[in-house]
Design a protein around this nucleic acid. Structure first.
Lengths: 288, 288
DNA sequence: TGTATCAGTGTATTATGTACACAGTGAGAG
DNA sequence: CTCTCACTGTGTACATAATACACTGATACA
């Protein structure tokens, strides 16, 4: 925004260009101002995430870059889970004493936000030439699932914990793109995105549980049988007859792998979306 | 563990009836044994959650019940968020000094597991006479969303954090029931449940963000405009053209409320599921 | 009636986030 | 060319929170 030369500075003194709008088409500033009213804390975290992290000219050179610190934190999370990511551990990993990390991130929350966005990486580039929206969305969902599975510590964070950083927006851009070819309205596209995201996140978390179990040496079949360990309590309990039957049912010959399950569920979800798109095709809502 | 007479008792000394099985149909013990191999820690937490919490006969009477403690913790979470639920705060709320809470729960994790299950409550009873599966699943999803929205602190926990307690199983039973009328295989039903759950959870979390903002005095329209505060950064950034267009698009006259959005998205999801059910109807998979 | 068992208390320890002041560094101002 | 001050990493200190442990007192049952 206005005077962001280096290190941020987002409020005040930039109303000039935004107040001239008729307020139907929202501008960046409209939204940023609304968001400050909505949740100032989230906004501050967002700012930190988008700040220019380039080193100032004065003073001693930094021993490492902020990206190094983020990388160190991610490695710790990768090896020992999110719980092992302490300020001391990260500082130690980059070769400093505890407090040094605060020269890179003002608090732990900022560091966590940063590793989430960095860990997410960029979505894979869509194939050229562009495929049907459905193929692209399918590819996106599989890519996101793969990303989440490769970073199991992400599942340890609450769903809505982090603000959206550049990488997260890249992922959003990547799924908005195919949907914007469908002729749906903006509101509808937003809805479809949240459906696909929700499904993908849920399925990824399940897969992460499996992966966690895997590292302790059980087969996928065993895990599938245990259905998340504690669900088995339903069996023999008269309060849960249907669910007990569900998890104790003999698997038919065509049992699916986790990957196949994901693909299958995604098909269902996209079938529903496609059905809406087709029914909507003559609805004359202006596409974005 | 073996001789746990009151306080639960799910493992040893009951192999007699289970080992006689041909191991195709899974028994409770099969699954509990598998689950111990899969994730001993989760199993221990699950045990704590299912333990009989009745007071032992010897010694002084307890000042409060474990349920009182759980209730106190839930009230704290309700008022000040999950972060305010500390062992000291809960102990103080029930009128004890810090350490007393450990007479009720061995550690904080156990307390958290307990408030999650207790906070979930029982799902509403299905209407009699039983409706079409789709109507029941729709009712279930709305009920679950309402429950999550009424307990915003639940969204502060990771998706897969807690083991499944009695109430959670009640919810699962309640959604398994309608699906088991569809003629789908057990594996398919499990898939459909996770689709509906994932969608509901995701949508609920979004709604919770809104509710949180609401308490700070912004209108739904404002929040909708801000789309989660930081997303607005996409606008004006050439890397995110489609997404920027999406969130800055003028809302057509028929803007949906959050509630309507949820219902609409659910329709899409259920359309996809229904399509599969119909295509599957002659597939001769034995229903459970 | 004695005693093992259990409830709540008080104190101490540990882990972790973070405030603050200090010493050294080096680019730019004079 | 040197002085200055923004900035870096360090060391110390403190607050919060989980939780171990030992103690006092209560009470059902042998």
């Amino acid at each position: 925004m206005a005077g962001r030369k280096k290190r941020a500075g987002h409020e005040g003194s930039e109303d000039a260009e935004s107040t001239s709008h008729a307020a139907v088409q929202l501008t960046h500033d409209d939204i940023m101002q609304a968001s400050a009213r909505v949740d100032p804390e989230l906004r501050r975290r967002s700012e930190l995430l988008w700040e220019d992290r380039s080193t100032p000219t004065r003073g001693p050179k930094r021993g490492v870059t902020p990206e190094d610190a983020v990388q160190a934190a991610i490695e710790i999370a990768q090896e020992n889970g999110l719980g092992a990511v302490t300020m001391q551990a990260v500082s130690a990993k980059i070769g400093f004493t505890t407090m040094a990390i605060y020269r890179y991130f003002p608090n732990k929350e900022a560091l966590t936000d940063a590793i989430v966005d960095a860990g997410m990486g960029s979505p894979p580039l869509p194939a050229e030439p562009r495929a049907h929206w459905r193929a692209e969305v399918t590819a996106w969902a599989h890519a996101k699932r793969a990303m989440m599975c490769a970073r199991p510590w992400m599942a340890e964070l609450p769903f809505v914990a982090a603000p959206h950083g550049p990488n997260w927006l890249r992922w959003l851009e990547a799924i908005t793109d195919p949907f914007s070819k469908t002729g749906l309205s903006a509101a509808d596209i937003g809805q479809m995105i949240s459906i696909v995201e929700g499904y993908t996140r849920g399925a990824s978390d399940t897969a992460v549980s499996l992966a966690r179990a895997r590292t302790r040496g059980v087969s996928e079949a065993e895990w599938a049988a245990a259905v998340g360990a504690d669900l088995g309590r339903a069996i023999g309990d008269s309060r849960f007859p249907k669910f007990a039957a569900l998890i104790s049912a003999p698997s038919d010959g065509k049992a699916r792998s986790m990957e196949e399950s994901f693909a299958f569920g995604l098909q269902c979800v996209l079938d529903g979306i496609e059905m809406y798109i087709k029914s909507n095709i003559h609805a004359s809502v202006e596409p974005i």
